[in-house]
């Protein structure tokens, strides 16, 4: 008797747990929205705590904040442009061939993937300083390859493994050379995989702050660092939160498009 009544309530308990956790996730985000739409510092013509769009208007009116959004987009795009072609080539090798040293290479990529940026932030700074790449988006884009490249290789590899190897063989019999096969036939088939890879590169690169901070000293600051620089003697927390909103929105849009493949990046499979 008790058992059947429990069974009836099980779906309800499941939904309830999920809803409670999602509310827990959204509490801080609601706070951000709330604070970003009120005036939080004494201003002429405003009561503190009054509803207003002034913070968003201020972002638009401040050149450094405006350009920081552009800086973030620039380095993320550069990172994607560097990561995806390199990862495509490596993933093809891992997916199609068994070669000497593939297991060791996997270990190297794995080790770099789990190395936190803080462990090599000082030498990275020195290296890029000696290459004159401080304050430039290229520096951050290159540094972020450390974690984006291994994960891109794994994502692309899992998509490639789903394409049967016979395709490669028949098209070579048809007279395609390897580069022409890869570009004309293989790449179009990989479009969804590339899309997911782009999403993950974007996500990991967008939120990272250790490299982004150490590689931008005086200029070229990304969104996260522009927010940091807003803190001072009298912090306009409304402006800070409005800027945080601006940094979440692009990611939220990307998540919407990638929602079906969002977990693909982590279904890791070693060389087969």
């Amino acid at each position: 008797m008790k058992n059947t009544s429990m069974k009836r309530f099980r779906p309800l308990i499941k939904i309830l747990s999920l809803v409670i956790f999602i509310i827990f996730i959204f509490l801080p985000l609601v706070q951000v929205v709330f604070l970003s739409t009120i005036s939080t510092v004494p201003r002429e013509g405003f009561v503190e705590g009054q509803f207003t769009w002034i913070n968003y208007i201020n972002i638009w009116a401040t050149p450094t904040l405006r350009s920081s959004i552009l800086n973030s987009i620039t380095y993320v795009m550069l990172n994607i442009a560097i990561t995806v072609p390199a990862a495509l080539m490596a993933a093809y090798a891992f997916s199609r061939y068994k070669f000497i040293g593939d297991k060791h290479l996997f270990l190297v990529f794995l080790a770099f993937r789990i190395t936190p940026p803080v462990v090599i932030m000082l030498p990275i700074f020195q290296l890029f300083a000696s290459l004159n790449m401080i304050n430039s988006p290229i520096g951050i884009a290159l540094a972020h390859c450390l974690f984006n490249l291994p994960i891109s290789i794994w994502i692309l590899q899992s998509f490639m493994n789903a394409i049967p190897q016979e395709l490669d063989e028949t098209s070579q019999i048809d007279g395609h050379t390897l580069p022409s096969f890869l570009i004309r036939i293989f790449l179009p088939l990989m479009a969804p995989g590339i899309g997911v890879t782009v999403f993950f590169c974007f996500m990991f690169s967008w939120v990272e702050v250790v490299f982004a901070r150490i590689l931008t000293v005086t200029g070229g600051k990304p969104i996260s660092m522009a927010i940091n620089s807003l803190f001072g003697f009298q912090t306009d927390i409304g402006l800070v939160m409005a800027m945080t909103m601006m940094s979440i929105i692009p990611g939220a849009i990307m998540v919407y498009f990638a929602r079906h493949h969002i977990a693909k990046g982590f279904t890791i499979n070693q060389t087969n």
């Binding site: 996730i25 967008w206 990272e208 702050v209 901070r213 927010i227 945080t244 979440i248 939220a252």
Partner: peptide
């Protein structure tokens, strides 16, 4: 959503 917030 939480995964999209800049870490700082």
């Amino acid at each position: 959503m939480p995964l999209l917030v800049p870490w700082n």
